[in-house]
């Protein structure tokens, strides 16, 4: 009885709302669908990285030498590679290192770069000049080249790839942070705060820093994609790690010699990189929209 009433109410109410919803759906459809699709892909790939054994049907190290270079089939959806490993399982397990490189290096780069930029921008003067000239020097070297040089100098290990990718992203974060701090520093409310005798440190922590963070979030969100690409590039070039379970970049590298005879070995890891980077950028873009003061006013 109660249920029926509720049902009726809903039904009645949704007539007018329904029409509006459909209009709304039509208007938002492409962008929102893309957003949802991106979210699903990112969530799926993150769960691959967290619980690979639950998703992968085979062990990534199982070399079934009787079944090498099998094309995609129901049994092996992505086919098998030249060791006889199931490509899908290897890609699923390989996501862990790729994502780790992406997230950790962004965290390291963002925090380090942000700190340098904040100190330089807030203190200004000689400190600013010194820090920014150092950053300028780093900026003259293209990011990937810098990462390559660092990875080559430190030797192959997961940690070193993270450091290399992080170091390459520092100048960008530092520049943005410094600019943001400087623009906030000059706002009237800061001057007001200073005039009532608030300490410099307190102004920085309470006002300047919180107001400067949103562009950093946006940059970080988009930076994850770039970081994964750079990390994959380093591993592709053999400057990354050598482990039992290769990451996506190393998988591409292993499979490239077989492109003409077994396209699936490097196509699927490549597709995984593309999809993940694309999705993370769509999401990053959404974060930017949400945090953009100009857009929220409009």
């Amino acid at each position: 009885m109660k249920q029926a009433v509720i049902g009726k109410q809903v039904w009645q109410g949704s007539r007018a709302e329904g029409a509006a919803k459909i209009r709304k759906l039509k208007r938002l459809a492409p962008a929102d669908l893309l957003l949802y699709a991106a979210a699903v892909i990112v969530l799926f790939i993150i769960s691959c990285a967290l619980f690979p054994s639950l998703i992968a049907p085979y062990s990534p190290t199982l070399m079934n030498t009787d079944q090498i270079m099998q094309p995609p089939s129901l049994q092996h959806v992505f086919g098998t590679d030249y060791f006889g490993r199931d490509v899908f399982s290897v890609v699923v397990h390989g996501s862990r290192d790729s994502l780790l490189i992406g997230f950790v290096s962004v965290l390291v780069g963002c925090v380090t770069g942000g700190a340098i930029g904040a100190v330089a921008g807030y203190i200004g003067g000689v400190v600013d000049a010194v820090f920014m000239r150092l950053i300028d020097v780093l900026m003259t070297i293209p990011g990937v080249l810098l990462a390559l040089a660092i990875a080559a100098a430190l030797g192959p290990s997961l940690m070193n790839v993270v450091l290399a990718v992080a170091a390459a992203s520092i100048p960008g974060y530092a520049r943005v942070m410094r600019g943001q701090i400087m623009s906030i520093k000059g706002r009237p409310f800061i001057t007001a705060s200073r005039s009532i005798g608030t300490s410099s440190l307190s102004i920085f922590v309470r006002h300047v820093l919180p107001n400067s963070l949103s562009p950093m979030f946006v940059m970080a969100a988009i930076g994850i994609g770039t970081a994964i690409l750079t990390g994959a590039g380093l591993n592709f070039l053999g400057l990354g790690t050598i482990k039992e379970i290769p990451d996506w970049g190393a998988l591409l590298s292993q499979g490239r010699g077989y492109l003409t005879v077994a396209w699936w070995i490097c196509t699927f890891p490549g597709l995984a990189i593309t999809l993940f980077v694309l999705s993370i950028n769509i999401l990053g873009d959404k974060v930017r929209d949400q945090l953009d003061p100009k857009q929220s006013r409009a």
């Binding site: 590039g233 196509t267 950028n281 873009d285």
Partner: peptide, 21 residues
């Protein structure tokens, strides 16, 4: 524009990596 750029970058890098061959 932004994500298109990123996408094409991602694709380009992937293709370049793979396309060495």
């Amino acid at each position: 524009a932004v994500w298109m750029k990123m996408t094409s970058l991602a694709l380009a890098v992937t293709l370049v990596l793979v396309g060495c061959s």
